[in-house]
């Protein structure tokens, strides 16, 4: 696993991609007629190619919605998302998503589930090699022929991450991917994500509800919060995280930022 993670060992024919993303005056509402509720309002921000951006915010503030518009799973009411300068229309093959739940096909082996992420254009032999490489990257070579229900939740989530990476995404969208995992598995997954990003420094949008996770992984932290008139969330703060990765999990430099982020999220006195 570690041998594969040295940058020189990446295969030349799938050079990594990393695209910039621009959210431009994005607005999104849900519900019909009088029950219609604005979720996002006038969200504008720019994500640099290769950056890891953590998205924080209270429950139901539209973190996932923002991610889903970038993936093309939802179409915004107003504004647009530009990836590498081109607007997102429908499911975008430049992106790959890993959801909070693994969402693997239970009737397929882990290997076949990862293969589902391969771009349509990839040839059978190259695809097969790539799937094996990714399974090794996430440490699941020995479980390639297992079914999702035969492995732990952490392994299923690693498979889900490998499936997303199989796309060779220019933008990796992670929707609270570690949220449902136990504390130890979560730490391993966070380390794995950093390893993967070191080898293939793609752009990552990471939705999380965990301030410490954001501070550990991200280059910048976006905080979504209520707009002026309380109708929908918008960009409340966009803060750089000081220091270079890998950062210590208990770094004192981050204490001030941590407590100010927590107070923005409505948790005081930490």
């Amino acid at each position: 696993m570690t041998a594969l993670l040295t940058p020189g060992s990446t295969h030349p024919h799938h050079d990594h991609r990393a695209f910039g993303i621009r959210f431009s005056r994005l607005g999104q509402s849900f519900g019909a007629a009088e029950k219609r509720r604005a979720v996002l309002r006038d969200v504008s921000l720019e994500v640099r190619p290769g950056e890891i951006l953590a998205i924080l915010g209270a429950s139901g503030c539209g973190k996932s919605t923002l991610l889903r518009t970038a993936a093309g799973l939802d179409t915004p009411d107003t504004g647009e998302v530009l990836i590498d300068g081109d607007p997102v229309r429908g499911i975008d093959e430049r992106c790959a998503v890993a959801f909070q739940e693994p969402r693997l096909l239970p009737w397929h082996t882990l290997r076949a589930n990862v293969a589902m992420g391969l771009p349509r254009s990839s040839s059978a032999s190259a695809g097969k090699a790539r799937v094996l490489e990714l399974l090794e990257l996430v440490g699941l070579t020995a479980f390639a022929k297992h079914r999702p229900r035969e492995v732990s939740g952490g392994m299923a989530q690693r498979t889900s991450l490998a499936r997303a990476l199989a796309r060779n995404p220019g933008v990796l969208l992670l929707d609270e991917p570690f949220g449902a995992l136990d504390a130890l598995t979560r730490i391993r997954m966070q380390d794995l994500l950093l390893d993967v990003h070191r080898v293939k420094p793609t752009t990552v949008l990471l939705v999380t509800h965990d301030v410490d996770e954001a501070l550990l992984l991200a280059d910048r932290v976006l905080v979504l919060g209520p707009g002026e008139d309380e109708h929908g969330s918008t960009v409340a703060e966009l803060l750089p995280v000081p220091g270079t990765r890998p950062r210590g999990r208990t770094s004192a430099d981050l204490a001030a930022l941590r407590s100010s982020l927590l107070s923005m999220l409505g948790v005081d006195g930490h």
Partner: peptide, 18 residues
């Protein structure tokens, strides 16, 4: 899923599908 999934133990997440 945001409110309901938070406390889910890891194995439950996969068994949801079956």
């Amino acid at each position: 899923s945001r409110t309901g999934q938070r406390g889910v133990v890891e194995d439950d997440a996969t068994s949801r599908y079956v």
